[in-house]
Nucleic acid binder design. Structure first.
Lengths: 240, 240
DNA sequence: TATAGAGTATGACGTAACGTGAGAGTCAAT
DNA sequence: ATTGACTCTCACGTTACGTCATACTCTATA
């Protein structure tokens, strides 16, 4: 297929295809004598991958790295993409709810807090990108995040609930009974999918503070929550 | 609220807020003596609007025009945004299905056509943006598009079905019986929501060819479909 | 009350992902 | 042989911020 056919089929511009060729992201398998780009079916599948990742918000540079990475597995990638899309759809659902609330609010039927106004924008827009970065990028954070990525919608809600509970407790002593109970819940929860030893659990707590990507996300549930969790997790690990 | 609070609440960066101030998109209602930006609740609501439009893919320039437009109605805007989000969620659903198919295909359980590979990317990603542009921008195309925007998911499918049927007929004579029957369906369909007179209907047909945004989208269902439809619609209007 | 630490401000240059011509060659159909 | 639709390669323009650098402000604490 030549450029325009591909463009029409996929909805991207010809210029975009040129660009992808330039940066080596999608180099057509064949070129005619006249220098015309000719795309193979294989090229089209790659383009599909590229567009998926782009839709999620990946920079092209990262996409290129991904596709070139020897550990890149097409199937696995599709599965991850699926998870991401589901998550994004979930997020859109939240945004729609937010709008519905806004509409009722504008009609004077109710009032909204500022936090409510921004539900759906926040937080949820990027964790999966992070996840994938980690999965194929920084191997260090890989494992923990991989698990997080597997959360379904329901479990995600579980997680939020626990987070919120913890956020309420964040001013108490990490060693206090309620705090320890809550952290215990967290431990159980993570083990539903992650299978953490106590040391790994404590280590994860350390990471919450050491890695600002975690810190930032966690602290959105309440300032200082990451630190609080780390302490509580450490205490929990030592006592169990 | 000061910049960082807003940033933390909404998930945008401080720089972004600065930028929005610079270009006059979101100018904080108050400024302290020291020159610190202070955002009001009103500002936050505006920011919410901005982020919604941005999520849909509107350029900031257009967003600014929208917000400044005297005809801009907050409530109406939220309603449109809702429609767009629903559409986008729908689209994500399609993409997820596409992935599922791809996965089955990669496992060798089935094969996919190239068109199928790109379902969800194409076409559906932008018509609502167009719609909104038109709604507040080119008043000319306004009415027709507004109606299209109101299509729910089901009616959208109806529309596609009719389009496909028409696409199959596009080589026949526009005055042929089947063609006229199909166009009749189209007329009925549009009237379910749009209330078109015969002249308006014929005029709409003209627009399918005159306005390349329509032409392009329609012709995706089959080359020359727009022209065929225009002719058939004209014939239909004259005979009824 | 001095000082540190966190927050904020204004430039100003950098970057990503194309858009948008300009000028020229290519191809299929008439 | 010519026309019209495609294609190519520069090359500069644009959008929406990111990323320092440098300097001021504010608040909590020694």
């Amino acid at each position: 297929m030549k450029v325009k056919e591909v463009a029409d089929l996929t909805g991207v511009s010809v210029r975009t295809l040129h660009h992808y060729d330039e940066i080596g992201l999608l180099v057509p398998d064949n070129v005619t004598e006249a220098g015309y780009r000719v795309y193979s079916d294989e090229n089209l599948t790659t383009l599909q991958q590229i567009l998926f990742f782009r839709e999620i918000g990946f920079p092209l540079k990262k996409i290129k790295e991904l596709l070139e990475s020897p550990s890149f597995n097409r199937l696995e990638a599709f599965e991850l993409q699926r998870d991401m899309l589901v998550a994004k759809r979930q997020q859109l659902g939240t945004m729609i709810e937010t709008i519905d609330k806004t509409l009722r609010s504008e009609r004077g039927e109710m009032t909204m807090t500022n936090e409510e106004k921004f539900k759906g924008f926040d937080f949820s827009s990027n964790p999966y990108e992070q996840e994938a970065r980690d999965r194929w990028g920084d191997e260090a954070v890989d494992k923990a995040n991989k698990n997080v990525a597997k959360f379904g919608k329901e479990t995600q809600e579980d997680m939020n609930r626990i987070y919120y509970n913890l956020a309420e407790l964040r001013h108490t002593d990490p060693a206090a009974a309620e705090a320890q109970a809550a952290i215990g819940e967290w431990y159980t929860f993570l083990n539903k999918i992650g299978d953490y030893s106590l040391e790994a659990f404590a280590g994860l707590g350390e990471m919450y503070v050491a890695d600002e990507r975690f810190t930032k996300n966690i602290d959105k549930f309440g300032d200082g929550l990451a630190v609080f969790m780390r302490d509580a997790m450490k205490f929990f690990a030592e006592r169990n």
